[in-house]
Design a protein around this nucleic acid. Structure first.
Lengths: 229, 229
DNA sequence: TCCGAGTCAAGAACAGTGTTCTCTGAATGG
DNA sequence: CCATTCAGAGAACACTGTTCTTGACTCGGA
């Protein structure tokens, strides 16, 4: 493998700089970042960007991929910081990490979980990191169930199709989890992103101000539901 | 009160036509509808629209208000179709109505519950219909609690601030509801819009295909949680 | 009946956008 | 050393929201 030529190196550096500028502009202007804007920020003419990204959508795709990875990393690190046996603590830590990352990067979060941008279809590459958080929640619940198998709450049976689909999803990851828990973990996942979306997108009523206190209470409730002690 | 002049009548008709065209274009093109596009659709020049709406944002506001009202109406009618004593049936009917309206009007739903449009702040007028659905859920749970006061599930106490805020919200509406239920109904509300958002925005993993079956199961679970029999 | 006032649509214009194409200058590699 | 490659500049095109001017039309009152 030959050493990367100077041209190749400066090219990858430039790509990195463009992404950084785009991220800054995304934070400032929201989802409608303009190519010309980021070009202006770097003292470059807009058409020059096309040497690095074939279109605005491809730039967005790169940002989305980065954002998925950053979110997954934040969740994973929060989980790793807790003792493995403390399932409830891990669950809440992951929830906190997701919430805090979303509040710190609202535009990126909007790209990931908000209205899809019109002409844009998520390419295959973004799919894997998108499932990281739910897989993490499943793993935590699985660990808890293994530790306290008697704490399993009674559960209405899952519809067959849902069970099959959830199995298909979690089979991407090693680890055992009782099927009775799947629907409950799924509910916790939905609750997590539902709460965060309401908060980030400002769609709760004015009377219900978004506060971490509520978030903790609701996620704790879902932890109970999922049988985490 | 004088009869509306011909000019006033044709003006309101024109306003209605513009909104209709904008709705069609919204359904076709997603959230980035263009004034010039709707103008083109009606054989009109773009600047003429400014006689009726002072800016694109005001047109969007009108669409958003309409959409909130349509969603609230769909939910309310679904509730009214069920016998008042069948709390669980009403709960599921409302959830179904919200889901089906959202799937039938994905762009409008995105306007209401997706990424907020960048420069846009929801005016006061849109706030009231936005709370209609959660008030409906609260009312249903309140009716159930009144009918079967013994069915109240045990509940961890709400944080004070959350309880105060939820009280403030539901005090806009008559009816009694035990405070232990508030957090659970809130969770059901979050679950409802979280599920619908995942489904409409296509953010569930490819392995978990969105199906009504899942939706029913999850919302039934939340109904159990909220003590609806 | 007529006429000033008010209203409407059209059209041009401006600033901004994504994208494509052409051109120049510089780095690259044989 | 020289031909090839490639990064950036600049012009151009089609599109957007918005503003302003201009001419035609309708309305209410004298």
């Amino acid at each position: 493998m030959s050493a990367p030529s100077l041209r190749a190196r400066v090219r990858s550096e430039m790509t990195e700089e463009i992404l950084a500028a785009a991220r800054r502009r995304l934070a400032a202007d929201g989802a409608n970042l303009s190519l010309r804007g980021v070009a202006r920020d770097m003292g470059i003419v807009a058409s020059a960007l096309y040497r690095y990204f074939p279109s605005r959508d491809d730039l967005l795709t790169a940002l989305i991929t980065e954002a998925y990875e950053a979110l997954a990393a934040a969740a994973g690190e929060a989980d790793a910081r807790m003792p493995r046996a403390d399932a409830r603590g891990r669950w809440l830590a992951v929830a906190h990490a997701v919430r805090e990352w979303a509040l710190a990067h609202p535009s990126e979060y909007g790209l990931l979980y908000g209205t899809p941008v019109p002409g844009y279809a998520a390419p295959q590459g973004t799919r894997a990191p998108a499932t990281a958080v739910v897989l993490l929640l499943v793993a935590i619940a699985g660990d808890a169930a293994q530790e306290h198998p008697d704490a399993l709450p009674p559960s209405t049976p899952l519809p067959d199709a849902l069970r099959a689909d959830l199995r298909k999803l979690i089979d991407q990851q090693p680890g055992e989890i009782p099927e009775e828990l799947l629907g409950r973990v799924f509910a916790g996942w939905v609750q997590l992103f539902g709460l965060v979306s309401f908060e980030v997108f400002g769609r709760t009523d004015a009377a219900i101000e978004a506060r971490q206190e509520y978030f903790d209470h609701q996620m704790g409730m879902m932890a109970d539901l999922a049988g985490l002690l």
